[in-house]
Structures are given as structure tokens and as C-alpha cells.
Design a protein around this nucleic acid. Structure first.
Lengths: 103, 103
DNA sequence: GATTATAATATCGAAAATCGATATCGAAAA
DNA sequence: TTTTCGATATCGATTTTCGATATTATAATC
């Protein structure tokens, strides 16, 4: 079976969405997933965590482990390089969306 | 190597984009690809044609072969079922985009 | 009427992305 | 020192995407 059209759409801009959020405040995997879920969208941990790792490896995010009530969280915040990429990407994405679809 | 953030975004809504166009006028693979190219985006035939096939198999598009100056084109137009799906998808996609990203 | 040219579609094996399930981690509590 | 638990990490299987190559069908050329 294949993924739904909307799920594909969500996956397509998940990186932009992560950068967008990590620009506002530190984010971590579990909460990020749950926030999406609240909106009615589901993304697997097997997809999500590797995306965080990739964005960090590419230097767009940087992480810091924190001990919250005895549990370890890995908070990600955007880097300067990440901000540049986000800036470009969000402009392009908006353009593309309007241009090719919404008019 | 991985695909670029914008390319991923494009791929994410390629089906919606195809349905959207096929709702306005008949579309065929070659021209569709070239139109994207004019906008600066590239998608492989190995990706594009199977997507058309899938959308047809799912009953969202229906095709008709035509002889244009001795060359065969397969024109796709949207079906009633496709219109329903497009309607739902575009609303959801817009919502999702605004909600999770643009505000 | 056989051969060549060509616009367009179709397909294939390899690479990448995604999933869902399971494993691991690390500190606190028991 | 064992158990608990929120959270991250990873694994094999499935699905998607790519770029290259093959195929199709007609027109033009000889």
C-alpha cells in the first residue's frame, strides 16, 4: 500500500517545518511528534529521528542533551547556517506552492 | 546523497499539482515535466510516469491516447472521483501549510 | 513499402526514504 | 542493584525515486 496524498505532502515539508520550529524554540523528537499528532498527522519515529540526525549532520541544527526529571531529552536549536537555509527554503516553498497550485 | 529540501517539498505535492492541472485541461507527461523545468524544478520521468499510472489506477485520472503530428500522446483528465480527492486534498494541504509553517 | 527519425511513454536495477517494531539509554525510585 | 519509564536509536522490510535504457507509433525519406 502507498501513503496518502496528504501524508506525502506532510513528509515533503517536514524538514522546513522542523527548522521553522527550531528557530522559535528548542524542539525534541517526542514532543514534535505529539504536536503533529494533535493536528491529526502521524509520522513514524523511524522517519523522524533520522531526519533530526541528518539536519544536524548537515549543520542546520545543533543539539544539547538535557536531564528533565531524570529523563534525557535531546533539544535541537537552529544554527546560523540553518537559518540561512530556512530563509531560502521558506521563500521558495511559498512561491512554489502558490505558483504551481494555489495561484 | 539526499534530495534537496525544496525538491522534497515539490515531490510532496506533485500528486495534488497533477490533479489540479488535470482539472483545468488535459495534461501529458512530457509537457508537464517541461513546465516544471521552466519554473526551475526537475522531476525524473522514472518518477513522473509511474505517478500518472498510480493516479489512473486509483481512478483519479483517466487517459486517452491521441495522435499529434504522428506522435502518440497520452492525455490525462481528472475524473469525478479525482475531483473529490483534489477538493479534499487541496483544502487539507493549504491548512497544513498555513497551520504548521506560515501562520 | 522498407528504413530512418523522433516525440513520447514505459520500464528496470540501484539508491534513498519510510515504516513499525524492537532495542537501548540514563537517571530516579524502589 | 533492580525496576521503571520517558525518550532516543536502530533494524529489516517495504515503498519511492532516480537516471538510463528500451519501446512505441507514426511521419518523412528514400
Amino acid at each position: 500500500m502507498s501513503y496518502s496524498i496528504i501524508h506525502e505532502f506532510l513528509l515533503g515539508f517536514i524538514k522546513i517545518h522542523i527548522l521553522y520550529h527550531a528557530d522559535k524554540e528548542p524542539v525534541f523528537g517526542q514532543a514534535f511528534k505529539q504536536e503533529l499528532k494533535r493536528h491529526g498527522y502521524d509520522i513514524s519515529y523511524g522517519t523522524l529521528y533520522p531526519i533530526f540526525h541528518t539536519l544536524e549532520r548537515q549543520g542546520y541544527l545543533h543539539s544539547k542533551k538535557e536531564n528533565i526529571k531524570g529523563k534525557i531529552r535531546k533539544y535541537y536549536t537552529i544554527t546560523t547556517k540553518g537559518k540561512r537555509v530556512l530563509q531560502q527554503s521558506r521563500i521558495k516553498a511559498k512561491e512554489l506552492f502558490d505558483e504551481l497550485f494555489e495561484k
